[in-house]
């Protein structure tokens, strides 16, 4: 289906006191449209770092990142922000909903940023939240949502702008079995429409649905 995301000799180091720790060592991987990929590996193996680089959040790396055949390593901060808004949907391990906003507005916000029309964005967000059985929680703020509800809102937020790439860090960590199946069905359907789903997870249910599994160990990939 064609490569949508690619890294070439990606290296990322962190300074911890006087030590320099290599989080990623010459990682070269490519992802195709419609793929459902799961990245696994031990804690500290560089999974989240890779996800942040692929999500155009972390730019402090060496090597190249190509997204839809565009060299994102040459993008300006403004271009990176625009690409994150339009092309990438992020689901975080710690959910990270905006505390000041309701569930509805958390989902609507990226759409509002993109289109500039609040009512339209809210309508779209409402229909997405309905898909995740959250319609009776749309007026609730994050502190009044359970972990599973908050995770569903976070997933809806990642999908609201119909991104071509969905990056998910432990997307099913807070979900019960039933909701996990619901979320996985949705992600699978998305991959079938040509979106790249890239998840970091150790969840067996998710691994079973994946087309490909990449293990990241000590900053290096093993497929």
């Amino acid at each position: 289906m064609g490569v949508i995301l690619e890294t070439r000799l990606l290296e990322r180091t962190f300074t911890q006191g006087i030590h320099i720790v290599a989080a990623l060592k010459a990682v070269s991987i490519s992802f195709e449209k419609g793929e459902f990929v799961v990245i696994t590996g031990p804690s500290g193996g560089g999974k989240s770092t890779l996800l942040h680089i692929l999500g155009l959040l972390d730019t402090q790396y060496r090597g190249e990142v190509w997204i839809e055949n565009q060299p994102s390593h040459t993008f300006t901060p403004r271009q990176l922000a625009a690409w994150r808004l339009q092309k990438i949907g992020f689901v975080f391990q710690d959910i990270h909903l905006l505390k000041a906003h309701t569930a509805l507005d958390n989902v609507a916000l990226p759409c509002y940023r993109l289109n500039g029309k609040l009512r339209q964005a809210r309508n779209h967000a409402r229909s997405l939240l309905r898909e995740f059985y959250m319609e009776d929680r749309i007026r609730h703020k994050p502190n009044r949502l359970s972990g599973g509800e908050a995770q569903r809102v976070a997933i809806a937020r990642a999908l609201v702008n119909n991104p071509s790439i969905v990056l998910a860090d432990e997307p099913t960590a807070h979900l019960d079995q039933e909701t996990t199946q619901l979320v996985l069905d949705r992600l699978e359907r998305l991959s079938k429409t040509g979106k790249l789903i890239l998840a970091v997870s150790h969840d067996e249910a998710l691994l079973q649905r994946a087309h490909r599994r990449i293990e990241l160990r000590y900053g290096q990939t093993q497929e």
Binding site: A82, R84, F92, H96, L97, P110, R113, L114
Partner: peptide
């Protein structure tokens, strides 16, 4: 929250 906003498209 600021980091989250950056992740959803703010520079």
């Amino acid at each position: 929250q600021i980091a989250t906003l950056m992740a959803i498209g703010l520079d």
